[in-house]
Nucleic acid binder design. Structure first.
Lengths: 344, 344
DNA sequence: TTTGCAATGGGGAACGTTTTCCAAAATGTT
DNA sequence: AACATTTTGGAAAACGTTCCCCATTGCAAA
């Protein structure tokens, strides 16, 4: 019940007056720019503290930086993304940067909306997680503002990338299953029709990794892929289709943990036990996979590390706009749990 | 490879020049303010389209609105929050508002950081989801910027609230279990020590609802509460403690689905079957609860509706800053699944 | 005609910063 | 003592909007 209406915000002008210096001086201290003696710095900092001044980011955005990093998440529900955010926050801890997220859930239009919105708000840099937008749109964004793209293969001169080595990740699963003695190892993929994306999207790479690993294990004849989507419902349908095909597989490699959820559901309905009748493996190592009663064998992408690296690359690029672009590829690791076992 | 460096942004001045009107005129059209003839509107809109002009939100923030709504999420991992966001997005669809989220995961300091950051960026309104900050901080925020608080009881003159009726929700579960014939119904709560918060935090209200419902069912002597935290680990520990106590309960009401996850894990380890040996119920109706092999009885909070209402209240308050504050309480519904059954 | 009034369009001052100068003062160099 | 250099601090011009005014016009009423 203090003030009925909000009191006027403290500005750099108030600080300057209180410290008996110019606004220029305050700004210099704030940005620790050249031309501020230690004595003046002290005076200004004291005034800032006494008045509780906070820089107005929107105003800053008109000339300099806003100290804001925008992260586009394709799907807030996917439990894999929080790990990435944690990694970013950890790296940015102690800097002045603030992370804000936006959801680009419904395809290209929504993604464009979010990225444009972030650009309109003068964000200093963008991190795009697993975007599905066309490469030309990504490059358009990256030309406007420093950008790091996560989880998408294929390099560009305009943005840096951080991705998991999905080819290796898929091989980890196939080798593990083959090592257990499985031969009829099926895969559920997320269908990718756009040829431009096949080379870049992780789902397509995982499917390719599956194919190559099957070949390497002398199981070329057993390659068995069903195309649905990376959702729980997709996994459910995919598993049903696989069960309906002639020779029932002894193991199913789902392209994502969330797909494995649907697979488990379908198998339970069909009265099949896991891993007794059929082994199931996922990809992402989400909390769901580690949940005791599920205990899903999966691939860990080190989301935390991905986040740390993305943040580092982004700050580097903000500091030096024209540096050559970098591509970081992280090695996934196999996490063996109780959903895989030798074939019956 | 078009331009080496980003081209200058199109501004309102460019539009004005192109349409051969003043910048004022463009601004009026943009805000459909009074004093713009249909003819001029058309001219300006044409110019805007031709030039691909987008308003610079940061610059707008200096005088008027930024058309940005900030949402503070306490925990990105909790699968309940996306429903709220979906509801908000749905309501805001078609408006010019853009939603951006920030995570305030690590307690009061982090929450303050996020809210301050949003204020610094001149956001037009804030939605705080299940904040743990002190009431005085919430009111401080609300005095500075229009604010809606979700999932916290107790009203304030400064902000609107949207919450689930946790008292009723807890009773739904207890009544359901009692109706099945259970008497030894235990509850796992999230410990709240701060007396100021006991009256406001949903977890405390759920525990109180449990107590009252037990009383109403003539089960006062069977009240059995263990205090941990609303996390999976908390549920795990809580269940272990309950099993160690003299009379083993025949049903466990976990204060949140995520807690129920831990409970299920502990029960599985102890070799107890659900619902054969013991029934388990949660709260929130997350995707996890609906997952077939789990099939958890729970309470649905209508997160979507919560989001819609929060967005509506916020826009109302942005439009009329001094309107009296509103409190919306939504009725939860019981979702019965396979994790509850009559006692053995 | 004049008067009054609504409708229309624009000039220019904010808004809170950063940044590019430039002047004055201090210091160093012959 | 005269000059060159560096350090220090500030004035003022951006940045892209909005919005308070004021000036002009058109038209109906007197």
């Amino acid at each position: 019940m203090d003030q009925p209406s909000a009191p006027r915000r403290i500005t750099i002008v108030d600080v300057a007056r209180h410290a008996e210096v110019s606004t220029t001086a305050v700004s210099k201290v704030l940005n620790n720019a050249y031309g501020a003696s230690p004595a003046m710095q002290a005076k200004v900092r004291k005034a800032i503290a006494e008045l509780g001044y906070r820089p107005h980011a929107a105003a800053r955005g008109m000339r300099g930086q806003t100290y804001t990093i925008g992260v586009m998440l394709p799907d807030i529900r996917n439990p894999f993304f929080p790990d990435i955010l944690d990694g970013m926050e950890e790296f940015l801890e102690g800097t002045n940067y603030q992370v804000l997220h936006g959801a680009g859930c419904n395809g290209e239009a929504a993604e464009a909306r979010v990225t444009e919105a972030m650009i309109d708000r003068s964000m200093d840099g963008l991190v795009l997680i697993a975007p599905i937008s066309s490469r030309s749109h990504l490059e358009h964004v990256a030309r406007t503002v420093p950008t790091v793209v996560i989880g998408r293969h294929g390099q560009s001169a305009f943005y840096d990338t951080v991705a998991d080595d999905d080819l290796t990740g898929a091989a980890l699963i196939v080798d593990h299953l083959a090592g257990l003695g499985h031969r009829r190892i099926a895969h559920i993929e997320h269908l990718e029709t756009d040829p431009a994306r096949i080379a870049e999207m992780p789902n397509a790479i995982r499917a390719e990794g599956y194919r190559r690993a099957m070949l390497a294990n002398d199981l070329a004849d057993e390659i068995n892929i069903v195309s649905t989507t990376y959702t729980q419902a997709g996994g459910y349908r995919g598993a049903q289709q696989l069960l309906a095909r002639g020779q029932r597989p002894t193991a199913i490699f789902a392209g994502a943990d969330i797909v494995a959820m649907g697979v488990l559901e379908a198998l339970a309905e069909a009265g099949l036990s896991v891993p007794g009748d059929i082994s199931v493996a996922g990809y992402d190592n989400t909390t769901f996979a580690s949940f005791g009663p599920i205990s899903l064998t999966t691939v860990d992408q080190a989301g935390h590390q991905i986040g740390v690296n993305a943040a580092r690359l982004l700050l580097d690029r903000i500091a030096e706009r024209n540096k050559p672009s970098a591509q970081i590829k992280l090695s996934p690791t196999l996490v063996v749990r109780r959903s895989t076992a030798p074939p019956p």
